[in-house]
Nucleic acid binder design. Structure first.
Length: 326
DNA sequence: AAACTAGTCAACCGCTAGTCA
DNA sequence: GTGACTAGCGGTTGACTAGTT
């Protein structure tokens, strides 16, 4: 496919910093006609700019909902958590931080956070400790390693650990329920592929018998939520997707964060919103059998309290889930 | 005061994916 | 099925500023 240049008439088009007059024209035009049609916008708006440049200027600077100024501690923490989850997917990270643009976050990451992580001995790419042989990072889940960013992040680390347990619990519920009824290979393919982070979680849980302090969970302001853990867990590949609402809807997040209150008696479907469910479904799109079962399970789960036996009490590694059910 | 260096961030570039005729 | 168009993404660049020599 032959691709036409972004801007047909690059000659004569202005580049570089925008002037207040240009901004005014662009804002005025977008306010009157709305966003979109970027290719033809410059001509209509009387701007000697590439449409792409106009879109970028609007998206990164002129949009009215953009929050400017320093990133606060919570935002920074969110960025780190989300980066551990998404990697350099700046747009995905930006969706978790309302009012912040992907460009702004990318710049902030590269100029501030990245350096700080390195200084703390954390690899900003893998989120693992740069020091080998310490025994600390190797035994922690990926996202727990992320938390080793500042002194006060130790608490956050614990909270993430606890939220991981929520994932494990949900998985246990699914495993217990589905293990008796559906094709084992389908189940293991979905929840056991690659032995991702949960491998470590289950192992960790087995040896330490961590109990969840719901009150301490409640004190968390972290934007990292069990929802993302859940999705990641089900995906099992460490590249889980998450919906914007996952990180922006605090009420949902709070509920998720506190879901340990009633331990396993709380229905997963009560805190899994539609959007999350869609994402979950996307991650399992190839496994229609599983999705049918899961849907049924979620519906039943509204009122049904399942007596269950935690999988992690029976195995050291999540990869062995097939053996457990065999 | 001038030259140099490092940090910051807006803007650009190249590419991809989605949509539509 | 193909190609053109469009929007959006992530990496990179370069102008500007602040600090240092």
């Amino acid at each position: 496919m032959v691709r036409t240049p972004c801007c047909k008439a690059e000659l004569g088009l202005k580049k570089g910093a925008w002037t207040p007059e240009e901004d005014k024209k662009l804002v005025s035009y977008v306010n009157r006609h709305g966003e979109g049609g970027w290719r033809t916008l410059p001509e209509k708006a009387g701007l000697k700019r590439c449409g792409k440049s106009c879109r970028l200027r609007w998206a990164n600077y002129l949009r009215p909902d953009i929050k400017r100024g320093e990133f606060n501690e919570d935002e920074e923490r969110s960025i780190i958590s989300l980066h551990a989850l998404h990697g350099n997917k700046w747009a995905a990270i930006a969706r978790g931080l309302p009012g912040r643009t992907d460009n702004e976050i990318k710049n902030y990451w590269n100029t501030h956070i990245k350096k700080r992580l390195i200084k703390k001995g954390v690899d900003p790419v893998t989120h693992k400790s740069l020091m080998s042989g310490t025994g600390i990072s190797e035994n922690l889940p990926e996202r727990n390693k992320t938390s080793i960013t500042s002194d006060d992040d130790i608490d956050h680390n614990e909270k993430v650990k606890k939220s991981e347990l929520s994932s494990a619990r949900f998985l246990n519920r699914v495993a217990n329920r589905f293990g008796k009824r559906i094709n084992q290979s389908v189940l293991s393919e979905i929840i056991g592929s690659g032995g991702g982070p949960l491998t470590t979680i289950t192992s960790h849980t087995t040896t330490t018998s961590v109990t969840v302090d719901s009150e301490s969970d409640k004190s968390s302001n972290s934007s990292f939520t069990p929802t993302s853990n859940l999705l990641m867990t089900v995906n099992g590949k460490g590249n889980a997707t998450s919906s914007p609402s996952t990180f922006s809807d605090s009420s949902v997040n709070d509920h998720l964060m506190y879901c340990d209150n009633n331990e396993d008696n709380i229905g997963f479907s009560t805190f899994l919103n539609d959007e999350d469910f869609m994402m979950l479904e996307e991650s399992c799109v190839e496994n229609t059998e599983f999705m049918k079962e899961l849907t049924r399970f979620l519906q039943e789960d509204e009122t049904d309290n399942v007596e269950m036996m935690p999988v992690y009490e029976h195995q050291d590694s999540f990869e062995e889930i097939d053996n457990y059910f065999a």
